[in-house]
Computed example of a mutant assay.
Amino acid sequence: MADFLLVHGAWHGGWCWRRVVAILAGQGHRVFAPSLTGLGDRAHLLSPEVGLATHVEDVLAVIEAEELRDLVLCAHSYGGAVATQVADRVPEKIGALVFLDALLPQDGRSLLDLDTPERREAILSRVAETPRGPVLPPAPAALYALAAPEDVAWVDRRCVPQALRTYSDPAVLTGAWMQIEVLAYACTLRFPAPDFRDIAARLARDPRFTIHELASGHDAMIDVPDDVADLLLGCAEAARAGGRDEARATADGTACATVAGSPS
Rank of each mutant, 00 (worst) to 15 (best):
M1Q: 15
A10Q: 12
C16W: 01
R18S: 03
R18D: 01
V20G: 01
V20W: 03
G26R: 10
R30Y: 14
V31N: 11
F32H: 13
P34V: 00
L36Q: 03
L39D: 02
D41Q: 03
R42E: 08
P48F: 13
V50E: 07
L52S: 08
D58F: 00
A61Q: 05
E64K: 03
D70N: 12
V72D: 13
G80P: 04
V82P: 05
V86K: 12
A87G: 02
E92N: 14
K93R: 15
A96E: 00
L100D: 00
L104Y: 12
L104K: 03
L104M: 14
P105Y: 10
R109F: 11
R109M: 04
L112G: 06
D113A: 10
L114K: 08
D115P: 03
T116V: 13
P117W: 00
P117S: 15
R120W: 05
A122R: 09
L124N: 04
L124D: 08
L124W: 07
R126I: 01
V127E: 00
A128T: 13
A128G: 00
E129T: 08
T130N: 05
T130Q: 10
T130A: 08
P131T: 06
R132M: 11
P138N: 07
P138I: 06
A139E: 11
A139C: 09
A145I: 02
A145E: 13
L146C: 02
E150S: 09
A153Y: 03
D156K: 10
R158H: 09
V160I: 05
P161Y: 05
Q162E: 15
A163F: 13
S168H: 04
S168K: 02
P170H: 03
P170N: 10
L173P: 05
M178E: 13
M178P: 02
R190G: 03
F191A: 08
P192N: 12
A193P: 14
R197A: 11
D198M: 09
A201W: 11
A201G: 02
A204H: 08
D206L: 00
P207S: 09
P207N: 07
A215D: 14
S216H: 05
D223K: 01
P225C: 08
V228C: 14
L232H: 08
L233M: 11
G234N: 03
C235T: 07
A251K: 03
T254F: 12
T254G: 15
A257W: 00
V259S: 07
V259I: 06
A260W: 01
S262T: 15
S262P: 15
